[in-house]
Design a protein around this nucleic acid. Structure first.
Length: 381
DNA sequence: CGCAATCGATTTGCGAATTC
DNA sequence: GAATTCGCAAATCGATTGCG
């Protein structure tokens, strides 16, 4: 019985993507180094290079070279004043990883741009977050003002804004990992659960792989086992009870699909201090728990996965910066002016002004006893 | 049906509890 | 006693729920 037989009955769109990614990885597994090189030169509109790849070298051998190694190989074939050798080295790695590099890089840039559009641009974006209750903490603002900002309103606002932006970027990067790794040859992004039933309940149509973010078709030496990954940015992400919950999900995936499961963190150079390793291992003993390069090697089936991600992301960030025109420091000046203006209006310093904005309100909106709706749940009982 | 509130997921940081 | 793990906090996002 092949891995594919065990998947029959799953959502047809998921199966289509799995079959597609199987073909994509089959190509690179069977291609020669020359074929990979030809693909890369063709995509850049360059003439084919005939005397770079060794006759019996495979595409994987060439594609798994580091960027520096590739560059050294290619550099003698181009004029030293141009960036062509570098571009081609990049393109070889991209073609090794993705079946459609151009589309992937464009989509990543689009995604980044969409998130940049949600970065703060006005003072009101700092005063309250996207959730109405997430009001900026005036006491932390005071600490920021005194301890970080030399009592400068301008600096205080810059620190506050950058904190907010970096929180958004954390979320952004986490999603990039899932989506970009899911696009690589042999991998597929596990679709978000659809419709009702919850995120944790397995359903062949609406939620076939609860607990996994990325799937991978089997290795050529172990054809029976689908590989399923729970991907985190760092080991600190899941804590306490999350580990047990994830472990329970992973072991359910192993049993349902005869799958090998992986609990991986992209960033991290040691398992020491892993917050949820224990809980996952206890609930799902056969799940491999990996961090850093060890994680990337499994996810990308290459030794240069981390390099590749950085390259794709940096390009996207630069493109997004140019295309959105988001200018952090200019916006911070405007936001600071707005805070100052509000303070002058109230005739006090801006910390006091914001303190009242952050805690004052009609008691009907602040006191559950005055909210006549329905009874609320309480933690203790 | 549309919008607001809520729920569950993610991140980091910190201190308490537990384990070796 | 040191190292590890657990649990809580604040912040964000997206999906679901529920109200008018």
């Amino acid at each position: 019985m092949t891995y594919r037989d065990r998947l029959s009955g799953l959502n047809p769109r998921v199966l289509t993507r799995i079959d597609e990614t199987q073909l994509e990885v089959d190509w690179i597994r069977s291609a020669t180094a020359q074929q990979l090189l030809d693909l890369a030169t063709d995509q850049l509109g360059l003439k084919p290079l005939t005397n770079v790849a060794l006759p019996h070298q495979t595409a994987l051998e060439l594609g798994n070279l580091t960027r520096a190694e590739l560059f050294n190989l290619l550099e003698p074939h181009f004029d030293s004043g141009t960036s062509t050798a570098k571009d081609l080295a990049d393109q070889v790695q991209l073609c090794r990883a993705f079946a459609n590099p151009r589309q992937v890089t464009r989509e990543v840039a689009n995604y980044v741009e969409a998130q940049v559009q949600k970065f703060p641009t006005k003072a009101d974006h700092l005063r309250v977050g996207s959730n109405a209750g997430d009001v900026l903490d005036p006491f932390i603002l005071a600490a920021n003002f005194e301890l970080l900002s030399e009592q400068s309103l301008q600096q205080t606002i810059e620190h506050t804004a950058s904190h907010k932006v970096l929180m958004k970027i954390e979320d952004l990067v986490g999603h990039l990992h899932e989506n970009v790794i899911g696009e690589m040859r042999g991998n597929f992004r596990v679709p978000e659960p659809q419709g009702k039933g919850g995120k944790e309940k397995m359903d062949p149509l609406f939620n076939p792989f609860p607990g996994a973010d990325v799937g991978q078709v089997p290795l050529s030496e172990k054809q029976a086992a689908l590989r399923l990954f729970q991907v985190k940015s760092k080991t600190g992400s899941a804590k306490g009870g999350d580990g047990k919950r994830l472990g329970d999900q992973l072991i359910a995936l192993e049993e349902s699909y005869f799958a090998d499961t992986y609990y991986v963190a992209i960033v991290g150079n040691t398992l020491r201090g892993h917050r949820s390793r224990g809980a996952v291992a206890k609930a799902s003993p056969r799940t491999a728990i990996l961090v850093g390069s060890s994680a990337l090697n499994e996810l990308t089936q290459s030794a240069v996965g981390a390099e590749l991600l950085l390259r794709v992301y940096q390009r996207a960030f630069r493109t997004a910066s140019e295309e959105t025109g988001y200018r952090f420091s200019e916006l911070a000046v405007n936001m600071a002016a707005d805070f100052e203006e509000r303070a002058n209006l109230h005739g006090t310093d801006f910390l006091s002004a914001w303190l009242h904005d952050a805690v004052d309100g009609p008691s009907e909106e602040q006191d559950s006893r005055r909210q006549s709706k329905k009874t609320r749940r309480h933690k203790l009982e």
